[in-house]
Design a protein around this nucleic acid. Structure first.
Lengths: 232, 232
DNA sequence: TGTACATCAGTGAACGCGCGTTCACTGATGTAC
DNA sequence: TGTACATCAGTGAACGCGCGTTCACTGATGTAC
């Protein structure tokens, strides 16, 4: 408790780092200061470290500014050079993965002619994302209402979850006579809920003997689409 | 930093509480000590206070031992007379509601002859529980794997979620020719996922313009049951 | 070509917080002799 | 009937922790004159 921070600080007058190496035993090397116009580099390094920590600990609440700073090799206040506060950092990390999810879903659907098949592929990509990045999924989709910064409105999240594009696909399926006419937005929400239910239960209850994800997704999707009235 | 605790403690020799009333301005009245054989009463009071706090704050992580103790009018260590640690307390609180959920589901289904209607009612009760007690639902169903004490195995939670009884209902529906033959446990899991998806999204994203819960549940259930092949 | 100066990219130390948990204790109350 | 004693139902104070955030500063580097 005497030395509140690193612990190596003599209260006296000797310049810090004036002699030899002087880095804590297991501590990461102190990061070299960026050159003049390259301050933005630190931002990326912070994000990368935060992301690694998030994945390693598997717990968003374990992602502290101090831990991130230590991982980068920088002092805690340096974070504030690039992020207003902790929440900003956490969400900046997730925004990256968020974009990845959108891209993965788009990629999965691209080149597929059948609209129902496109939806199926999108859901599959969504599921895979959630299972592979459970902590990111938690922050994005399972957080407490209020923990989310303004930028990430519920509407935007839902939009990125594919509500819009899936609704479009549904419209196309209806036009093609594969599905009966119905409220496509509502139907897209139902599909979202079904997949979200699967993702969130699988990551929250890994001890439960769920059938293999692929098989389960197959059944789930079939149930949903049939339930929406697909003529098959 | 000098006075780490309450701050009113003189280091000297004067007996604490030796003079007059001596209770903090806004603090709750100090609770009267229980009579000899009635120590167990405190347990209930702690649980009640914890439950109230959980509902009031809407955040499980805000439920601290100190806050609970203060609400009861007791010192923090008194909690340890009845609970091994914080986790034990949190889950004891939830276990109560858990039983309430089981009962609500059973009550909703009782007296209903049609097995499919029974499932619908159960799901409705489950949904209502989640929406009305979001924090309890979070702790029970959306927690991080590992935050859950041994007693609450994933299997038990799933069982309480109604997997078993729903599977029985499905079997009956199949026997009655309402549903085609299929893996009833898997089907029950699918239904669980669908309802859980709805509950968890609704409580996590209150800002999203979901259709009214009743209407949405109606659509969701219809979709699910039709999807399982109901002859209707 | 030299030099004062502004700016950039950070640092070190501290503030104050609330938390879970432990420890030694205390005072009332019932019980055995 | 009196009294020593065990037990019960707690208390008060402290430990040590890590955290987010603020503040005044520092040293290197580029730039204008």
């Amino acid at each position: 408790m005497e030395a509140p921070d690193g612990g190596e600080g003599p209260t006296g007058s000797s310049r810090p780092g004036s002699t030899s190496s002087r880095s804590a035993p297991g501590a990461p090397p102190r990061r070299a200061r960026a050159r003049r116009g390259e301050g933005e580099r630190l931002r990326d390094e912070i994000l990368a470290a935060a992301e690694a920590l998030l994945i390693a600990t598997g717990d968003e609440s374990a992602l502290s500014l101090r831990a991130v700073a230590a991982a980068v090799g920088v002092s805690p206040p340096a974070i504030y050079l690039h992020f207003a506060d902790r929440a900003e950092l956490v969400f900046a990390v997730c925004e990256r993965h968020w974009l990845q999810l959108e891209e993965a879903m788009a990629a999965a659907a691209s080149g597929v002619a059948d609209p129902v098949a496109r939806i199926r592929r999108r859901g599959e990509a969504y599921l895979r994302f959630g299972i592979e990045h459970p902590e990111h999924y938690r922050v994005l989709m399972m957080g407490r209402p209020g923990d989310t910064p303004e930028r990430f409105t519920d509407g935007r999240l839902a939009g990125s979850a594919g509500i819009e594009v899936v609704a479009d696909d549904l419209r196309e399926a209806i036009a093609g006579g594969v599905l009966p006419g119905q409220d496509v937005t509502e139907a897209a929400v139902l599909l979202w809920m079904a997949v979200h239910g699967m993702v969130s239960l699988v990551i929250s209850k890994p001890g439960f003997p769920f059938p293999p994800p692929d098989q389960l997704y197959d059944r789930l999707f079939t149930m949903a689409v049939r339930g929406l009235g697909a003529s098959r």
